[in-house]
Design a protein around this nucleic acid. Structure first.
Lengths: 188, 188
DNA sequence: TGTACATCAGTGAACGCGCGTTCACTGATGTAC
DNA sequence: TGTACATCAGTGAACGCGCGTTCACTGATGTAC
């Protein structure tokens, strides 16, 4: 049964948002088209009225995940001083809540490993997302223009690396690595 | 045709070593049993004379990859001062060669994302490997016992995070992130 | 505004394919005497 | 040491299964008059 244009747009957004979460939880390959459609309250066949291939969905969902993550980061910088925003971001990134809920967390930590083996189009989208986060984070760092960006890049690398390690390790190791990263002095 | 015990042991080692490389290159799921056996010069059916399930192979191959990586790290500390060994490890970790050859590189960066969604047995093996690397690396860090370990954990998180991001990004972003991490001052 | 018809969002079964695993088989190795 | 037989490493076809994708179909929406 056909559905109105407005209804279709809403369906499309629902598919992308559900996929953005499911991909971060299960990985790019393990989240199937049927899973994604079920998540949106639909059946698998309708998928191809919205995307030509699964790869097209992956790109849209990755971009949506980055957008969500980026907006949350940006809003920190609107509410606090740059240094406090950066510190708050780190505290949240290294929290148990973030470690335990990849579906709603940073796509860098959740999907970096998968994107490394994906298409160039996905890598491009990933790189763009990484750059946006670094640019936002740089405002909370010390030093000159260049040094701010370098510090922000190192900060993101450490945050994503620590979260990935924590999620991939036994609880004791996870706890120790996150604790070590939380205790690092600010801005350096 | 049956093969001698010695021959079987060699075959077993060949399967595990080939798998250790293939897994880091393609991921835990994407490297198939048939691929692994072909890599060892065998056919798929014989796999089950060596392992009960694919999961058992994944554990053995992950441990082999960590062992390989760990021995290389350890040998640095035998040849140089601790500080120089740690600096050399970072330089190698952040090199273009390491970024472009995950199959022979650190399993933390190559497989962390996959292991995060794998069995507890694999997480246990991963955590053990991570701990060994941190312990070795700690010898090259400044500060007290506890501080050395914390610095080593942060260092590994940054190195693995940077490498994962570099592999998952467009070339320009990859270059920038690796350069930023290389320029970080030592031991801090 | 009403009416007739074309469009197309969504359904759910079916497709070919590659996966992990199983199986009957082969023949060299290991073992018992 | 030789001989007869059991074992089992490795082969390659076959299994059921879930995947991405295709398809004929349905019926409400959009469009032309």
């Amino acid at each position: 049964m056909r559905v109105s244009r407005d209804e279709k747009d809403k369906t499309h957004a629902r598919i992308v948002e559900g996929a953005a979460r499911l991909l971060r939880e299960r990985g790019l390959e393990a989240a199937s088209v049927a899973d994604v459609m079920r998540e949106a309250g639909l059946t698998n066949g309708g998928f191809y009225r919205h995307f030509e291939t699964k790869d097209e969905l992956l790109k849209a969902a990755l971009e949506a995940a980055f957008e969500e993550c980026y907006l949350a980061l940006e809003s920190r910088f609107e509410k606090e001083t740059p240094a406090a925003a950066a510190a708050g971001y780190r505290a949240h990134y290294l929290s148990d809540a973030h470690r335990d809920n990849p579906g709603y967390g940073c796509p860098v930590a959740a999907l970096g490993g998968d994107v490394a083996r994906a298409t160039e189009a996905l890598k491009k989208a990933f790189g763009t997302g990484v750059n946006r986060i670094i640019t936002a984070l740089a405002a909370g760092m010390r030093g000159g223009q260049r040094e701010k960006r370098d510090r922000a890049a190192r900060e993101l690398a450490m945050l994503a690396g620590a979260t990935m390690i924590a999620r991939a390790s036994d609880p004791e190791t996870a706890r120790a690595v996150l604790a070590a990263c939380r205790s690092k002095s600010k801005g350096r």
